[in-house]
């Protein structure tokens, strides 16, 4: 067989593997780490799952900022547990990502070098206690809308991780809303604090659902692989429709003068999102981009000697066991 014939045969094999793969996804069967998958599928999943994992661990920082100052013991414990859940989510998402043939160190390197992205919302500062309520209510609320469809995505480890993540996120969202409710039933100062937090987090939360459909580069392919079930704009509308009545119950005013229920469409119309701000923050010019990355880098770099010690100790113990066995 000459080279050309060999190449043709290889192409044919890949084509048939690809057909089997596509058929599996169409039948709603899961793709598992050991299954054959196109290179692009693997890369897209590494990108998305790692971006998600990074968002979880960078997301620990703005909320972690309030653990030491939480206003009551009950709130302190709940916030600690919430931030710990995020670390847990990061852990299973990194593990899911590692099944695609990339190490945690490589993933961290990508985060630290700026090659990998994380959710831009975590580059906004948490200024008051009400921000902790607003993040739970709005940011976790938007995250759930993004994530629930992923429980049935095609890549098995990601889908299974998301089932657990979503359960915990919905608990976090209720907890955040309950913080807001408590503030809104409190003194005028507390209500003002809640309103101010809503004013600052509302628009970034809407941006969290991603760029508008005509600017979203990955949507078509992601829909095919069930990494996405609805477009960014559809998800955003769903989030707004669900959240506006919740703000009404709190007695808070949405910071959007164009927000209005549209009887014809059955949805809320809303004002224009400041996409310039969104892209600025994505490009690294948000208030806390530098701090977030340097906090992650510090944790990793300052922990290097600890990780090295653990490895050295484990090796010594293994040597001892071998010697004892001999």
């Amino acid at each position: 067989m000459n080279t050309r014939e060999k190449m043709n045969e290889n192409d044919e094999q890949i084509r048939s593997l690809e057909e089997i793969f596509e058929a599996k996804i169409a039948r709603d069967e899961k793709i598992e780490p050991k299954d054959w998958m196109p290179e692009k599928y693997r890369k897209t999943h590494i990108r998305q799952i790692s971006q998600h994992a990074h968002s979880e661990i960078v997301g620990m920082l703005p909320e972690g900022n309030w653990i030491s100052r939480a206003p009551s013991l009950r709130r302190k414990v709940a916030l600690l547990a919430k931030v710990q859940d995020e670390a847990g989510h990061g852990l299973y998402l990194y593990s899911a990502c590692e099944t695609l043939g990339i190490s945690r160190e490589e993933l961290y390197d990508q985060l630290h070098s700026g090659k990998a992205k994380y959710s831009s919302i975590f580059n906004y500062p948490t200024l008051t206690w009400a921000d902790i309520g607003a993040i739970g209510w709005l940011v976790d609320g938007a995250a759930i809308i993004n994530q629930v469809p992923l429980c049935s995505t095609s890549f098995g480890p990601y889908a299974r991780a998301m089932v657990r993540v979503c359960k915990e996120e919905s608990f976090h969202q209720r907890q955040g809303y309950e913080i807001m409710m408590t503030l809104c039933n409190g003194t005028q100062e507390q209500k003002d604090m809640a309103q101010d937090a809503l004013n600052r987090w509302w628009w970034p939360a809407l941006m969290m659902l991603g760029p508008t459909d005509d600017e979203s580069v990955h949507t078509a392919q992601s829909m095919k692989w069930k990494l996405k079930r609805k477009t960014n704009d559809e998800l955003r509308q769903q989030f707004i429709d669900q959240t506006v009545p919740q703000a009404d119950i709190l007695g808070l005013k949405m910071p959007d003068k164009d927000l209005k229920y549209n009887n014809e469409t059955g949805h809320y119309d809303f004002g224009e999102i400041n996409w310039d701000e969104f892209w600025q923050v994505v490009k690294g010019h948000g208030m806390c981009n530098k701090e977030r990355i340097s906090a992650r880098k510090n944790a990793w770099n300052n922990g290097e000697w600890v990780r090295d010690a653990a490895v050295a100790y484990a090796e010594k113990q293994a040597d001892k066991e071998v010697k004892e066995a001999v």
Binding site: G64, K76, L80, Q84, A299, G303
Partner: peptide, 25 residues
């Protein structure tokens, strides 16, 4: 609690947070 999110690995971060949660409980 001050260390939450700043540990040398995710696993130690989670474990130390557990200890903080126990103590505060």
């Amino acid at each position: 609690s001050e260390l939450c999110g700043h540990g040398p690995t995710l696993e130690t971060d989670i474990a130390m947070t557990n200890i903080a949660l126990d103590l505060l409980g």
